[in-house]
Design a binder for these strands. Structure first.
Lengths: 226, 226
DNA sequence: GAGGATCCTGAGGCGGACCTGAAGTCACCT
DNA sequence: AGGTGACTTCAGGTCCGCCTCAGGATCCTC
């Protein structure tokens, strides 16, 4: 899960980023509105934590611009208590929830979780099918035809990301950013290792070759004709 | 059983929350209408205690919005005696019962119990079947085939939540938030302990393995072929 | 065809997730 | 007051997933 935190108070931002990273989120931080907007437009995030009072471009505008650009990522707004800004206005511009400063870390975490859950339920997180391969995030199961293939957490996450972009080339960096923590700076070889494991588990035993290597570019998940 | 209390008088809210928590309910509190509404939309509660006079958004509106959003949770409204607000209006907006301030704690508890019972009788809680496992919230019974398995309150609550999401992976955090008080921040190990107990009681003696551990993700209740 | 870059994959250690028996705490009942 | 049982915490142990590493295979370039 990728989170973007747009918050100009550096200490608060760093503190939140640290805590959320420890929870397993891949966290990115922007310290002003324009940077935040750019970031959110460039990369798909699963959730954006957006402060209202920001230098340059305030949170309302960032929020509105994102929605105008068709970005549907859940947005959690942070408002100060002084009443200068109105919560309702935030919700009107397209935010999904708001939180009044000061707030505790656990409350923030709970809200984030709630938003992510709501999104999942609404979307239903439908199973993805590529050829006779089924990837079901809800039950965390992978099926080749009717046969269940047991995958580890990381294997499943990599496969899920490939399946979401089936037919398209996905770079190793892209996979790393989505599956691993954003700040993870290990060897990209790790992706090769997991692709290798996936092939061994759900291609080899079935005589398939669904995960294609695109040399110099990345990997592509195809139907992989039997 | 999860309760949401929406009440701006902090002392009253805290007092009620404390008492009801002692009764075994998982209690959450919101101090204004909008927060209460969001909370109730995010998490499924078994009952909402809703004050009418609230800052920002009054109880009627909260109630109406919840019903409009398809939330069928029983709502118990709290009205002041001064007659400014009308009980009938509360019932019209979709509340299930009302209580006039001041009221005693035991009366409130009785009303809450009555509402929960009514809901159960109305068939709102049908027995859940997963394979040959039957979980009946109304009679608070668990059956493996025809054999009744005796479970403690917490064990049953954990099983119920797993059964409600049968076939899907449920995280430990998710289980904790539903079965324990929302603000409970103990060791997630507690969930492991209860899963362990459930397996000992309703899997092992029958040679089953219906509660699957999904490493790094949570647990999943399956039919668990015998 | 040589050389370099890229990719594959098996082995192994480490850390942590998970399990579970046991002890401690508390409320309730007798 | 004592006993009982549910709930929780704790600690020891097991096991498994994750990552690193390195040698080999494959592909591209010149």
């Amino acid at each position: 899960m990728r989170l973007l935190i747009v918050e100009d108070e550096r200490r608060l931002a760093a503190s939140l980023a640290g805590g959320l990273a420890a929870e397993g989120f891949a966290v990115e931080v922007a310290h002003d509105g324009l940077t935040g907007l750019r970031r959110a437009l460039d990369h798909p995030f699963d959730l954006v934590v957006l402060d209202i009072m920001l230098p340059g471009m305030n949170g309302y505008r960032v929020c509105a611009e994102l929605r105008a650009a068709g970005v549907e990522t859940p947005i959690l707004m942070l408002t100060a208590k002084d009443g200068e800004y109105d919560e309702a206005e935030g919700l009107d511009t397209g935010a999904d929830d708001y939180l009044t400063k000061p707030f505790s870390y656990v409350v923030l975490l709970a809200r984030i979780r709630a938003l992510l859950r709501r999104r999942e339920r609404a979307g239903g997180a439908p199973a993805i099918t590529v050829g006779d391969l089924t990837v079901d995030p809800a039950s965390r199961r992978a099926l080749r035809g009717d046969v269940e293939v047991e995958l580890t957490a990381k294997e499943f996450a990599v496969l899920e990301h490939l399946a979401l972009n089936a037919g398209q080339v996905v770079s190793k960096t892209q996979i790393m950013e989505h599956v691993w923590d954003f700040a993870y700076d290990g060897d990209p070889n790790i992706v090769e290792v997991y692709v290798s494991a996936l092939r061994r588990k759900l291609d080899a035993p079935f005589g398939r070759r669904s995960i294609q290597t695109v040399r110099g570019a990345g990997y592509r998940l195809d139907a992989g004709g039997g």
